[in-house]
Design a protein around this nucleic acid. Structure first.
Lengths: 255, 255
DNA sequence: TAGTGGTCTAGACCACAGC
DNA sequence: CTGTGGTCTAGACCACTAC
């Protein structure tokens, strides 16, 4: 039903790129559209060899740079694999790489037109136990900053944020008023955020978290653990706990 | 090579780009590295105006196309915003766009060197209730294919996959042996996967799911709901339930 | 109008893969 | 060796923005 009409390439279709996309598109975009259509329509199976740059140059009457751009962008989008000297291939595409956007919670709530507020449960320096010290690149027992903050949307607890911060990166971290700004916002201002790793899992809240979120400690929660570095220097380790019924991470994938 | 020698922008150099990245990198990559370093180091604040293409051409002694490529790629990576006629700006970057990869579970398990097996609990055609029909672009009451399969890693249940499939897209879906292939794998072969949206949340398993996963129905589970279309035609709607303590989604962000 | 980005070209040299 | 992709150039024309 999709790859409806065409087929029976009989004579290799001679010319005509089968798809004749919007002629107002710039040429490189037309090449991309042509290749995407072909991939979507099964003209090239996963893993199959794609036309070479030279072939596309001849077929479309464009310069090689233009064709190269189209192919390079499709590669960046994960649709093609290219190997110097070997050729261009359709990706097996048994993976779906998707963009997941994690925004500052304050902005996320504001974007919904709702009111964000915060309850600061804890804001102090502590001595880092070995495991934590290792995560933040500190000596065991060194001072770390620790905050625990509940974030509310229109008065309803949405997230409990347990965060440890490397003092070297944000010496004034403890001096901020986190009912007026968020740790994320402050840390982004202090040091642009350059690398992050995260884990997403389901779990139960700790007693503290259950208290701050106003849920039973048996309530399933979505837990995001995120570690952030800037230029290789660990900045912060955060555990973000969301009541399962109140929070969802959404994403999409559109090549 | 060609543009080999140049450089020595005479006075310009004065302030030396601060960063003098790996000289073995291709020129466009050096420009990218220079700009990334500057952004990471706070040389340009979020929202600040970046050097124009012409300025970078003068500074690096490169052609405009090369500089343009560096800027275009940084834009694609979300680090820069560009407006024709206006200029190039550092993104406010109060968002962290991260790559989340969802792979076929069979491949994921195989990649860990473990053994994947599946228990097919249900495999039949059903009549689509209105809500489901709407999601799949069908008439209410139309036939849909429904499978419920537990996926095991070395014999331990890891995921319960409840899946509805648009029969028009995969007429032979019910004829497959899902102890030998996975629905994901089969559907990818039938119709390349072109758009997907998903939700990730924490919840409790249904009674069926708890039974198949061998967990209590109070156990927190990570639930991924994914909807997939190919060329705008809905293909499948899947609910993937993972026991919270056994499954984690990991991702990273490294601009 | 001047500056900016968006795009294209027709060549070129190189590194690498496969025969 | 040939064919492939990786990259660069020095111009060019255009559309848009801001003044």
């Amino acid at each position: 039903m999709l790859q409806a009409a065409p087929r029976q390439p009989s004579m290799r279709q001679a010319m005509n790129p089968v798809s004749d996309p919007d002629p107002t598109l710039p040429p490189y975009a037309r090449v991309k559209a042509h290749l995407k259509d072909g991939l979507a329509g099964g003209r090239w199976a996963p893993g199959a060899r794609m036309p070479s740059e030279a072939e596309l140059v001849a077929q479309f009457g464009l310069s090689r740079m233009t064709v190269n751009r189209a192919l390079r962008e499709l590669q960046a989008e994960g649709l093609l694999e290219r190997r110097q000297g070997a050729g261009t291939y359709a990706t097996a595409l048994h993976r779906v790489a998707s963009t997941l956007t994690i925004r500052d919670l304050h902005e996320e709530i504001a974007a919904r037109g709702h009111r964000h507020s915060a309850v600061v449960d804890l804001q102090r320096a502590e001595s880092a136990p070995p495991a934590l010290a290792a995560q933040l690149g500190l000596e065991p027992g060194a001072a770390v900053f620790h905050t625990r903050i509940a974030h509310l949307e229109n008065g309803v607890p949405l997230q409990c944020e347990d965060r440890y911060v490397n003092p070297a990166c944000a010496p004034d971290y403890l001096a901020q008023d986190y009912t007026r700004t968020t740790p994320t916002h402050y840390l982004l201002a202090v040091a642009p955020l350059w690398e992050a790793q995260y884990l997403i899992e389901a779990g139960r809240p700790t007693a503290d978290e259950a208290r701050l979120l106003g849920v039973a400690h048996t309530e399933p929660c979505l837990v995001v653990v995120r570690r952030t570095q800037s230029r290789g220097v660990p900045i912060t380790l955060a555990r973000l706990v969301h009541p399962g019924m109140r929070y969802t991470i959404a994403g999409s994938f559109t090549p």
